[in-house]
Amino acid sequence: MSDEIIEMHGVRVLLFAGDGEKLAAAQDANTFLSETWARDATLAVIPVSRLGGDFLDLKTRIAGEVIQKFVNYQVRLAILGDISAWTDTSKPLRDFVYETNRGRSLWFIRDLAELDQRLAANAAG
């Protein structure tokens, strides 16, 4: 599978393929941001399979640094897939996911149906 552009509720979304370069360090965000801009998308959807092993370990600060880059460059980010293996064992991560999912810059979503619901709700105001 390759990267794919879709339109959802007026938002141009870049769905990254499940395989490819990993988002394992803050500087790796540049690769994903560059591809998002090149495809004129405003929302990048990155599968959990593309995250580096330490991404969801908040002590490494990788997630925070990556998210800050996306926010600075005004590109929304969604992490696609089941992260319950991590949230079940980390209250700080569970709290982080809860808080970010309340905002508009970063979402952790299980599937594209959940993304569709969130974008529909945002479009409705």
Rank of each mutant, 00 (worst) to 15 (best):
N72P: 02
A63D: 03
W86S: 13
Q74T: 15
I6R: 02
V75Q: 09
G10F: 04
M8T: 10
E65G: 15
I109Y: 04
D57W: 09
R110T: 11
V13M: 00
I109D: 06
E35P: 04
R102P: 04
K22T: 10
L77Y: 02
G125N: 07
K22I: 10
R39W: 12
E35Y: 15
D28V: 02
H9L: 06
D3P: 06
P47L: 06
D57G: 13
I79V: 10
S2D: 09
F70Q: 02
T36K: 02
F108Y: 06
S49M: 09
A17M: 04
Q74W: 05
D3A: 13
D57Y: 12
T100H: 12
N30S: 13
Y98I: 03
N122M: 13
G52W: 01
A85R: 15
R39I: 06
E4R: 11
I6A: 01
A38H: 10
D19C: 09
T60M: 07
K59L: 06
F96S: 04
A78F: 00
M8A: 11
R61F: 09
K22P: 08
D116R: 06
I62Q: 00
R104E: 14
Y73E: 12
D3C: 07
S84K: 14
T87I: 01
K22D: 12
K91N: 08
A85E: 15
R50E: 00
E7H: 06
A24S: 13
K91Y: 11
R102F: 06
Q74P: 05
A24H: 07
K22N: 14
F108I: 09
L93W: 01
W86R: 14
E99Y: 15
P92G: 12
A38F: 04
F55E: 01
T42F: 04
R94D: 06
F108H: 12
I46N: 02
D111K: 07
T42C: 13
L23W: 00
V48Q: 04
Q68I: 03
Q117P: 03
W86T: 11
D111N: 15
I6Y: 01
G103L: 08
E7S: 15
V75P: 05
V66Y: 00
G64S: 05
V48H: 05
V11W: 02
I109L: 08
M8R: 07
N122A: 15
E35N: 14
V45A: 00
R102Y: 05
D28N: 09
G125Q: 04
G53Y: 12
F108Q: 03
D40N: 11
I5W: 12
L77K: 01
E21Y: 11
L14S: 01
I83W: 00
D40C: 13
K22V: 07
L58Q: 09
E114A: 08
V11Q: 05
A17V: 12
D19G: 11
A121D: 14
R118E: 09
K69A: 07
D3T: 04
Q74H: 14
T60C: 13
H9S: 11
A78C: 07
T60V: 14
T100P: 00
T36C: 11
A123T: 11
L115G: 01
G20P: 05
L51I: 14
E4C: 12
L58K: 00
R50Q: 08
L14C: 10
L14V: 10
A17E: 02
K91S: 11
A44S: 09
G52P: 10
